[in-house]
Design a protein around this nucleic acid. Structure first.
Length: 432
RNA sequence: GUGGGUGUAGCUCAGCUGGUAGAGCACCGGGUUGUGAUCCCGGGUGUCGCGGGUUCGAGUCCCGUCACUCACCCCA
């Protein structure tokens, strides 16, 4: 029981406090770094939008829209929804700001919170965090490969190795309707329960990845989209594969992959980590060639992905990875007395301006408690300053790892520490 | 929305067939007048989720309720 607070976090939200929050931040940064290196521009968008945007963009028949949205009426009587996914909002912004009228493709990335009113479960939260990209304005298969490779690089840079990438093509407006009809015909001949029949009528693709053995058995001979692509889509898909192979991105073809959002066409992919329990998807995305137009924009194709920050962090834990180091600072200052404190406050300011991470013992804790604080902080050096040292014009600088301590003249204290910290960082690389 | 599991200290948990709570870690203080991590000594920090009931007596049994959690569904 967390104290006796009357309040609790809302049901199903993921919260992170130190030290865990360091790892969360590190994961989010790692997942977005590849996009930043590939020419994607950042977009900061609202977390709520006109409800109609999601109904039209994501699709009325999807579970996300039909039963998982946080929707409310604002004071002006408008229907507002907390965003359940990122792509629709990005499309809206692209159209609204005319980004599609400049050079194509438009490449954007975002990071933020999303909301779905589902029953919480391991890895499934009502407020969760995603890093995503969208590339709009060309259907060049090389761009498909770039997008997939960027996502893969994000996970790989965290050290993750236990996930797999699944890939397929969902066809286009030309070939999918015919396939869909074929599949529906096939499914109607099977022995299925009421709920599954309803699903087959609404979204037959979804029946294909049913988990139940008695259903799977009946599906072995089901027609697959991949075998029924039109010539253009088949060529597009094989070219995507050629580029992915060239990039060294490994993947499995999963012709039964299902996506929860209606807008996906052609190249579609998902990153799955088997160590996470029932919610095993750590990221997913695909092409959405009709979306822009259906939202009132030009008829431009696009492709993007969303990567789950929370789930990627869970995957890191499962694999025993530590995405961030524990140390909160490099130098910990220990003043003894008011004069020393005043002096060290200035030193702290100077060091921080120089990029050194500094903390300090506040509250006149006394030597022992202060040194304990230094130890917990993870700092490499502690600086002790008391009357004795002030008289001598120097401070005691202690290397907390070796335990060695030496007097350093006060005039050169800042320089001395800045250099010592810089040197300590070099062998480990990447100060952050 | 439908099931199952669990609610005891800041955390992880123990508490047998009912006799008003305990361990480890963490935290605080001391051993050290100016030195952490190690070591030693001391400190329990708790409406046993909440509300009723049974009983001389409930953490323990019964009912209800809430919360958390896992799974179905769905997905990041």
């Amino acid at each position: 029981m967390a104290g006796s607070s009357t309040f609790q976090a809302p049901k199903g939200v993921a919260e992170y406090v130190p030290p865990d929050s360091n790892a969360w931040l590190a994961v989010r940064d790692a997942l977005s770094a590849p996009a930043r290196r590939a020419g994607y521009g950042y977009v900061e968008l609202p977390v709520f939008e006109d409800t109609g945007l999601f109904v039209r963009g994501v699709g009325e028949s999807t579970d996300v829209v039909s039963k998982e949205m946080y929707t409310f009426e604002d004071r002006g009587g408008r229907s507002i929804t907390l965003r359940p996914e990122g792509t629709a909002g990005v499309m809206r912004a692209v159209i609204e700001h005319g980004l599609d009228r400049g050079q194509l493709p438009v490449k954007l990335w975002y990071a933020g919170q999303f909301f779905r009113a589902e029953r919480p479960q391991a890895g499934r939260y009502r407020q969760f965090s995603q890093v995503g990209v969208e590339a709009i304005g060309t259907d060049d298969p090389a761009l498909d490969a770039e997008v997939v490779a960027i996502a893969d690089e994000g996970f790989r840079s965290l050290g993750l190795s236990g996930y797999r990438l699944e890939l397929t093509s969902l066809g286009c407006a030309q070939c999918r309707p015919a396939y869909r009809e074929r599949l529906q015909e096939f499914l109607s001949a099977l022995d299925l329960d009421e709920a599954t029949r309803a699903r087959a009528a609404l979204n037959p693709l979804r029946v294909l990845d049913d988990k139940r053995e008695e259903v799977r058995r009946q599906l072995v001979d089901a027609p697959l989209m991949l075998d029924n692509l039109c010539a253009e889509d088949a060529a597009h898909f094989s070219e995507v594969r050629v580029h992915l192979d060239a990039l060294g991105v490994g993947y499995d073809i999963n012709p039964r992959m299902v996506r929860g959002l209606d807008y996906y066409t052609r190249t579609t992919f998902e990153f799955v980590h088997p160590g996470l329990g029932a919610q095993s998807g750590i990221g997913g995305g695909g092409r959405y060639d009709g979306l822009m137009e259906s939202l009132g924009g030009q008829a431009l194709s696009g492709i993007g992905f969303g990567l789950g920050v929370d789930r990627a962090l869970l995957a890191c834990r499962v694999e025993g990875l530590m995405p961030a180091d524990e140390s909160r600072c490099d130098v910990y200052l220990v003043p003894l007395g008011a004069t020393a404190k005043a002096r060290l406050v200035t030193v702290a300011g100077a060091l921080r301006k120089g990029g050194v991470r500094v903390d300090m013992a506040y509250g006149d804790r006394g030597m022992k408690g202060a040194m304990k604080g230094a130890d917990r902080s993870g700092a490499a050096y502690a600086v002790v300053l008391g009357e004795r040292d002030l008289d001598a014009g120097s401070a005691q600088v202690k290397d907390l790892r070796s335990g060695e301590q030496a007097a350093v003249p006060l005039d050169s204290l800042t320089n001395h520490l800045t250099e010592a910290v810089a040197q300590a960082h070099v062998p480990q690389g990447e100060p952050q």
